[in-house]
Simulated assay, not measured.
Amino acid sequence: MWRQKIGRLYDDAEFAAPASDEAIDQIERLLGQRVPDELRELLRQTNGVRAEYESGLVWSVQEIIQENTEFRQSADFAELYMSFDQLMFMGDNGGGDQFAYIRVSAGRPDDVFVWDHETDERKWVAASLEDYLKRRAGADGDDWYK
């Protein structure tokens, strides 16, 4: 399902082999956050998607773990930015801004936000993973979310 949807939106989409449930469960264990159902389903079909000049539409399991861990543990980032503990980064625009789910009990679990690396602003951009992919595909330019 996800490969077909994404393939219709992005001519240059590159898919990886599917991720196992055990690999996806590592995200939850290492980050202490539940993986949204829609992201879990996508990762079961393709362990990450690249498009738009190799930008990470949706990161692989390893990239999700690595990037989130780095952001949360960086002393430099702790001095410069608000906490990243509530975010689960899952993609990027290729220029420094990153897309994430907000993982708090009061939030809507499928909403996607963008984190602006220059301003530390966190802004809603889509109501779901599918909505994020459609909005991104239908936009002109890299800064479609601004």
Rank of each mutant, 00 (worst) to 15 (best):
I6W: 02
A23S: 15
Q98M: 14
Q73T: 06
R108T: 11
M90H: 11
Q66A: 12
K134E: 15
E38V: 05
R40E: 13
Y53W: 15
P109T: 00
S74R: 06
R3E: 11
D116S: 08
I24K: 11
D97Y: 01
E118L: 14
Q62L: 06
L133P: 00
L9E: 11
G32M: 07
G141C: 04
D140Q: 12
Q45H: 04
E14Y: 12
G96F: 01
Y101R: 07
S83H: 05
Q98C: 10
F77E: 01
G32F: 12
M1Q: 08
Y53P: 03
E67V: 04
F89L: 15
V58F: 02
A137Y: 04
H117G: 00
G56D: 13
A19V: 09
V58C: 13
R135W: 06
M88V: 02
D37F: 11
L42W: 04
D21A: 15
D116E: 11
G7K: 01
A137R: 07
N47K: 06
E28L: 05
E67I: 01
D142C: 07
L80K: 11
E28T: 15
D143H: 12
V104G: 01
R72I: 00
L57V: 03
A106D: 10
G56C: 09
E63P: 01
E38M: 07
A16V: 06
S128L: 00
S105V: 11
R29D: 14
R122T: 14
R50G: 02
H117R: 08
L87W: 15
W59K: 09
E52G: 09
V125L: 06
